[in-house]
């Protein structure tokens, strides 16, 4: 589904962030990408989303070279990816309801469907009472749950979670992790980027370890070993 082929990323003048990285992620896989801060995890994720282009090499999404497709096609791919980020990336001028509804609108869902679906989703993630609050009126945990709701509401094919538990207490972190496992069991591909050792070791899934821009380990049932 996602394929990195000899990808190198050099920031000018000569900072190599990724160095000849190649791997493939199949549909329905749960893959964790681990590494120290600055190892290249975020650059790798930004490449899947088309936010960065490789200096050399190719990144494919379902056979399409992300660096070569036009912006309309890129947006179509982004709609098939649900993103959860450490800084949440919520829309600050929209309420909790609108933040979730917006994603559905982007995907062309009609108003009636949105009116029905959003309250259900907000109930599941425990934000039903905060429907009309703005993101800055929520706690860190609540914002992260909202980001998760937003990532899931359109039933995307792939969930990308970049340090999703970085700002959360252990309880909320566990909640997010178990949610990701559930999504994966439902057949969705999950890519988790983290440096949370405990979380990775508990999962017992495929782990790609990056160090100084290179893949140093890629194990089917990996551990956090740095």
């Amino acid at each position: 589904m996602i394929k990195f082929e000899n990808v190198t990323k050099i920031y000018l003048p000569d900072v190599t962030v990724l160095d000849d990285v190649s791997f493939e992620i199949a549909e329905g896989e749960f893959v964790s990408i681990v590494g120290k801060s600055g190892a290249g995890k975020t650059t790798l994720i930004r490449m899947i989303l088309g936010l960065e282009t490789p200096t050399t090499g190719h990144v494919f999404f379902n056979g399409q070279d992300i660096a070569k497709i036009d912006s309309v096609e890129l947006q179509k791919i982004r709609r098939r990816i649900g993103g959860i980020y450490q800084d949440y990336k919520l829309l600050p001028t929209k309420t909790v309801f609108e933040n979730v509804a917006y994603i559905m609108e982007v995907n062309g869902r009609d108003n009636e469907e949105i009116e029905q679906e959003v309250p259900k989703v907000l109930e599941v993630i425990g934000l039903k009472d905060k429907t009309n609050n703005f993101p800055d009126q929520l706690s860190g945990g609540e914002q992260q749950r909202l980001a998760v709701a937003r990532a899931l509401v359109n039933y995307p094919d792939v969930i990308i979670a970049d340090e999703p538990t970085g700002n959360l207490d252990p309880y909320n972190a566990y909640e997010v992790l178990s949610l990701l496992e559930k999504i994966n069991k439902a057949g969705k591909t999950v890519i988790l980027s983290t440096h949370d050792r405990e979380m990775i070791n508990k999962l017992g899934k495929r782990v790609i370890t990056i160090e100084n821009g290179k893949i140093i380990r890629d194990e089917a049932k990996g551990k956090f070993l740095i």
Binding site: L49, L51, S71, V72, Q75, K76, I77, R78, R79, R80, I81, G83, K89, L90, L91, P92, T93, Y102, I103, V106, N107, R150
Partner: peptide, 13 residues
């Protein structure tokens, strides 16, 4: 920032 987030979630131009 808001525009960047909208693009990130796949909003068309």
């Amino acid at each position: 920032d808001e525009i960047a987030t909208q693009r990130l979630v796949g909003a068309s131009s």
